[in-house]
Design a protein around this nucleic acid. Structure first.
Lengths: 244, 244
DNA sequence: ACAAAAGTGTTCGAACTACACCCATGG
DNA sequence: CCATGGGTGTAGTTCGAACACTTTTGT
């Protein structure tokens, strides 16, 4: 069994989309006093862990994600390395680390990854801690510097969503145009005209219409589409466009 | 004096532009056999160093850059953290590290920063090693995994140049439209129509014409412009545009 | 029959492309 | 006076924005 590298960790900002909101997966950080049973810490953090000596950052992030979802073909992207001197500094943070079996005492650096999953079909669980999806518009108190990490992840996600077709990673394989529209609207915080959005999507040759419709909806069922990464890679063109 | 963190470094990919080409600053890595005087290593690397205990990644990168240029207001951006298991693996790399006074033996992780400077007015020097600008189209043999780091830096620079006005960082304060055009053409590897490029630039309210012309050129002197970051920040708009 | 979301076309202005000739300066 | 790069306008086309009514399904 490889040893951990004590001063380096990876934190995963796992984004999920449920056709309605953008969510992020958090782990509960709970610590009770051994004698009195009184709650000492009760807040939430991102999912993360130290890296092992036989891993690189990518494989460490993939390991964490596989542990939670059982899957290993999930979209993952390194977005930033965090190094603030006081990034693990609050009394709660120190108390928590003191109670971990590894007994970390060094300054810890962390590399942030964000991950995109469809949270209508992928299910997530943690061996011994409580994990939960939170809408990004309604977050609890976060431990360590995880608020800063999450904000940076969101910023990078938005930038990437504007320039590359990564939104499909947040949808099931088959999706409707208005699910896709809702996704862009929620993440970018904008509204699009329905007709114009549809027109734009139908132009993209890598969004392929299926001969299949939604079922069990109590309104006119919509046509389903799939995204083809292969077609995208073949037809993409570069663009030069710094605005106004 | 703060101690270094032995398993973490920062490497700076310092880009410069001379109105003609995109260049990168490299340091010579030279080692001769103490007895025979025969050359054991003679190649080049990026500028980088370990980080100190009282620094974060940003301040470490700024320290390296200040050491080389004397300046501390230079454009710097973290772009990626590198962790390959064999990133310092060749016989030359090991030999070099063995001869450093610090005697590094651990696996070393590095965080990459790229920096943009105008190499017609900023001058660079190193205390005891040879530093030199190389056109990115004509690079020497690079040590460690620095070829990989440089390629990633270029990729991120190109992506950012397409979506944000960072090209001005590579030009002197006052510049002409065709210097700007040459810069975009060289970095993105494209050609633009002179009239259309000028039209586009003149629309940008943050590129401000001066009542001043080039001097000492043996052709019709061009009008000079400056870039205003303030105007840009105030007028920028977001765009949603993943290409065809 | 009603509620809920799907689907559809046209017009207008803005932005992008392609393209050729005269001008100011230094040598 | 010649070589070098600077500066300019127009026409055709494509692209994005705005906007309202009909269709299909479940209840």
């Amino acid at each position: 069994m490889a040893k951990i590298i004590p001063n380096l960790s990876v934190d995963c900002v796992i984004f999920g989309f449920d056709f309605n909101q953008l969510n992020v997966l958090l782990v509960e950080r709970k610590l009770d006093d051994e004698k009195t049973g009184k709650s000492l810490i009760d807040d939430w953090t991102l999912t993360g862990y130290h890296i092992f000596e036989d891993e690189n950052f990518d494989t460490a992030a993939a390991r964490i994600l596989k542990g939670l979802s059982g899957l290993d073909n999930i979209y993952l992207e390194q977005f930033y390395a965090f190094s603030r001197l006081d990034r693990v500094n609050s009394p709660n943070d120190k108390l928590w680390l003191d109670h971990q079996s590894e007994g970390f005492s060094e300054r810890i650096f962390t590399v942030g990854y964000f991950s995109l999953i469809d949270n209508t079909t992928v299910s997530i669980s943690h061996n011994d801690r409580n994990v939960k999806w939170f809408p990004i518009t309604d977050l609890p108190e976060l431990g360590f510097d995880h608020k800063e990490i999450l904000e940076k992840a969101l910023e990078k996600l938005r930038a990437k969503l504007r320039s590359e077709p990564i939104g499909f990673e947040l949808l099931p394989e088959k999706f409707t145009v208005s699910q896709l529209q809702r996704l862009y609207e929620v993440i970018l915080g904008t509204k699009f005209d329905r007709r114009n959005f549809r027109k734009k999507v139908l132009q993209m040759k890598y969004v392929i219409p299926l001969d299949e419709k939604q079922k069990g909806v109590k309104h006119k069922p919509a046509q389903l589409f799939i995204f083809s990464k292969e077609v995208y890679e073949k037809t993409k063109t570069e663009r030069f466009d710094f605005s106004i």
